[in-house]
Design a binder for these strands. Structure first.
Lengths: 344, 344
DNA sequence: TTGTACGCGTTATCAT
DNA sequence: ATGATAACGCGTACAA
């Protein structure tokens, strides 16, 4: 257990001053004689020297690190998102501190404090919806904030990357309406969130296009957290006039909802045609494979990273940007025409 | 975009010296008059002061941070593991830097360097199997290393937390043998890994108990990375005398393997009884629900964290510990007696 | 081209 | 109980 060598050790054994070593490490900061450069590099390798991040950070004032504040790593969607972002970031030489909120505002606040302490230059997050002041404070301290998937409308000045929510929900709904379904359940996120509202709006818009009125009973806005999806499924199917179609538009609740459907032994698409928002690797391994709105996770990752990094380098216009990427509808066998469902 | 206040700012506006503020922050470092303490706390709150992690780290020499080097966040097993570890760690007031290797030794080496730069006190990892010298170097620099799920036998002095691999594999195999199956395929990890070897050993041991000789053709050790699982499934089922049972004992390859089974339209358990190592949330949503060896992820997380933290505080005996937790076998409907399979 | 010296924000030591 | 002040390791003007 010996202690790591410092820049001074390197300088000493290489017979030069610390500034020379520093310049070898950061070439753009000044010239250095080829001969000495070689010598220094050799010593660095011999000693296994590595600059300490903390010291550098303290000196330069910032760190090539961003924070990633994600709702729940146990959910395939967020896990994959994290995976892609971490991957992409590495390519740009920036580290990522991954934190999870479990949809809890307090944990979220905690995470933000931690990220502040570590003076990250930017944060990519799927916000819980609370902590508005805290987010604002982050911004005022120069931390670039990018929201992905969801957003907080009350907060101005943040970049947002998400899928085209209204359109995606409309398309999913129209697909079922087109199959003849009249009563379509919708499990969305909280109406307090942009995502929740947009998807409900798309759902309604589709109904208008088909001149069908929507039964408010069929729309369930459930929290991201907990087992709201499963419960909503239960109560929707317990309705006297139960729906023949179901759209799970709350990504965080897809697992919970599908689990309940399977537990209840619901015949899909016999009794119920279903579409879920989020095409994770297991969606097509269920029986039957589930039709899904595929969130292009790569695009979400690439764009959000591009935005934070761009801002950190000041290479972007001041105005906050909103990027909406297209989400494909992936039809599979969990949807069937209403008339062909003999059960009802 | 104003700059964050420092300890000096606090001291100044509170009319005290920085030492007092520091002592308020770290109570065990010395006494402070109640009156002043109050004043300082108030100012801290007003200014929204937070100590900078980098400065503290530089001063004390280490940081309450551990690294988590995980193979692939897109895989539910690792994602959940990460989730639990991050969660547990927060409870202990330690931050976690999550990194992914994508099973690539180079990326792994990279991650280790990064963690070194940030002078983490410990690392929890699912090692790729390479970088033996690098891991050793980490240790020699005082970084506590704990391997979870897998290990590298060539490396001494590391703590290991894993499931009881031999026994679990034996139990799974005996379950199928007990159902009358004579030819059971095994998809394991590389024989270069402890996990791969142990599970193969359990598989063989079970056969011995049943006095059945194992056909080497039925054992496929595939890399953690890539689509080896799917390919193995394909070639196993293409065998002239194809197996009637299959155990996927390579956690990283479960997705790939199951996907191939579904794509090939294999009738389960009609044509093939299957058991997978890793009970993720979707395992029971497939058709039929898959029998699985359930890795107690919480236990893995708790123990590995306990070990790193314990070592960091020097509260543990020097000898490296190996913790093997029990893994339940969860029988579901993907296994059936051989005689009842009419197809064959 | 190279070296010296100071600052970054915090903790810790030692007087007071 | 409090206050100077020296580290901690690195970057960087500035001088040589």
């Amino acid at each position: 257990v010996k202690k790591a060598p410092t820049i001074r050790d390197v300088a000493a054994t290489a017979g030069v001053s610390v500034s020379v070593v520093s310049r070898v490490l950061n070439p753009e900061s000044g010239p250095v004689a080829p001969a000495k450069r070689e010598a220094v590099l050799r010593v660095i390798d011999e000693l296994g020297y590595r600059p300490r991040a903390a010291a550098r950070e303290l000196s330069v004032g910032h760190t090539p690190t961003i924070g990633l504040v994600v709702a729940d790593l146990a959910n395939p969607f967020f896990a994959q998102l994290a995976d892609r972002i971490v991957w992409e970031a590495r390519g740009h030489g920036v580290q990522v501190m991954v934190m999870t909120t479990q949809e809890d505002p307090y944990l979220e606040a905690d995470s933000l404090d931690t990220l502040l302490d570590r003076s990250v230059g930017g944060v990519i997050a799927t916000p819980t919806g609370a902590n508005v002041e805290k987010w604002a404070r982050l911004q005022s301290l120069g931390v670039n904030v990018v929201f992905v998937d969801r957003t907080i409308p009350e907060l101005s000045g943040v970049d947002v990357v998400s899928i085209e929510n209204v359109g995606s929900a409309r398309r999913a709904t129209e697909h079922l309406l087109g199959l003849g379904h009249k009563r379509i359940g919708l499990i969305s996120g909280p109406v307090s969130t942009s995502t929740g509202r947009s998807r409900i709006q798309g759902y309604q818009s589709a109904h208008e296009n088909f001149s069908i009125s929507v039964d408010p009973q069929l729309v369930r806005d459930v929290p991201f957290r907990g087992d709201g999806g499963g419960d909503a499924v239960g109560s929707l199917l317990a309705l006297p006039d139960r729906p023949t179609g179901l759209i799970v538009a709350n990504t965080a609740q897809v697992q919970s909802s599908v689990r309940r459907l399977v537990q209840m032994g619901t015949s899909i698409p016999g009794d119920l045609s279903v579409i879920v928002f989020d095409d994770n690797p297991w969606t097509e391994l269920t029986s039957p494979p589930l039709s899904a709105i595929r969130q292009p996770i790569d695009m979400l990752a690439v764009h959000s990273l591009e935005l934070v990094l761009g801002r950190m380098q000041g290479k972007l216009p001041a105005a906050p940007r909103t990027i909406e990427v297209n989400a494909d509808f992936v039809p599979r066998s969990s949807c069937a025409p209403l008339l062909l469902s003999p059960t009802r």
